[in-house]
């Protein structure tokens, strides 16, 4: 099935305190598909996500949403874009002073004229999707980390977004709950045609849900394609990532040796 790309990334660089964290990232995120961005911790995948949702300023001409330059968005365009997206953060990012159901109602309360009761029912529907129907009246502090994350997903879904960004959905979850979340992600794409971007380092879940996989390493894209293509890739770093091999000789060994041996370079 050919679907038009929603987001195109054309050579995105990113720096953090003078250090290059993204280096010429280039790939496309097609509509109505699940794109999984994979890589070890610190490979820059979360930074990439922050660019895509407009939390980190993007240089002009690097990221295009429906053909429009994200880097050139003014405040209004950015708000319009953000009302089309939902974002789940690593920690869930629930508001501590509100109940779980109220948390989910926040975007609805701000952006719509819906009455409180309707908002509450909508919040319960979303909570049920993530398996937390009974926890609407709990405070976030009463939930476990995994439950908070699921509640965060429910909040990201509150406005029925076109594009859903998810940062590490299954980290810290037990295998059964994680599988349930995977199923939900696939279901959202199938039933609502949502475009979903998942950042993860969980191999199994990635191959399970992805229509497209992007593998990152040290700020670069080292492979991109359908899951089968990634599995068949012969790039040694991809193979290494897939087979969960640990590096015997870390790439920064020279730095390490010069530090520990107090060699003056």
């Amino acid at each position: 099935m050919l679907t038009p790309s929603i987001i195109e990334i054309r050579g995105l660089d990113s720096y953090y305190r003078g250090r290059r964290v993204l280096d010429g990232i280039r790939f496309e995120i097609p509509g109505n598909q699940v794109t999984v961005i994979m890589g070890v911790s610190g490979c820059g995948k979360t930074t990439l996500l922050r660019h895509l949702v407009g939390l980190k300023p993007t240089e002009r001409g690097r990221v295009f949403v429906d053909g429009e330059d994200l880097g050139g968005f003014g405040e209004q365009k950015l708000q319009a874009y953000r009302s089309r997206i939902g974002v789940l953060f690593q920690s869930g990012a629930l508001f501590n002073s509100l109940t779980v159901a109220e948390n989910i109602g926040v975007p609805l309360k701000v952006h719509t004229r819906l009455p409180e009761e309707t908002i509450r029912i909508m919040a319960l529907i979303k909570l049920n999707m993530v398996g937390l129907a009974k926890f609407g009246d709990f405070m976030p502090s009463q939930l476990s980390g995994g439950m908070r994350k699921r509640a965060g997903l429910a909040r990201a879904l509150a406005m029925d977004p076109e594009i859903l960004f998810v940062d590490e959905p299954s980290s810290g979850l037990d295998p059964i709950t994680a599988a349930g979340l995977d199923r939900l992600i696939v279901e959202l794409r199938e039933t609502l045609g949502m475009t979903i971007v998942v950042v993860t380092h969980e191999l199994e879940s990635a191959f399970h849900i992805a229509d497209q996989i992007v593998v990152m390493d040290e700020g670069r894209v080292i492979a991109a394609g359908a899951p089968e293509e990634i599995r068949a890739a012969d790039d040694p770093r991809v193979r290494q990532f897939l087979s969960r091999e640990t590096d015997l000789r870390p790439p920064d060994l020279d730095d390490y040796l010069s530090i520990i041996l107090a060699r003056n370079r």
Binding site: R50, V53, G54, L55, Q79, A80, R82, S83, I85, G86, V87, F89, Q90, S91, A93, L94, F95, V106, P107, V110, H111, G152, R155, M159
Partner: peptide
Amino acid sequence: EQIDAIECMA
């Protein structure tokens, strides 16, 4: 990341 979350909710 709650402030980021608020921003992302437009």
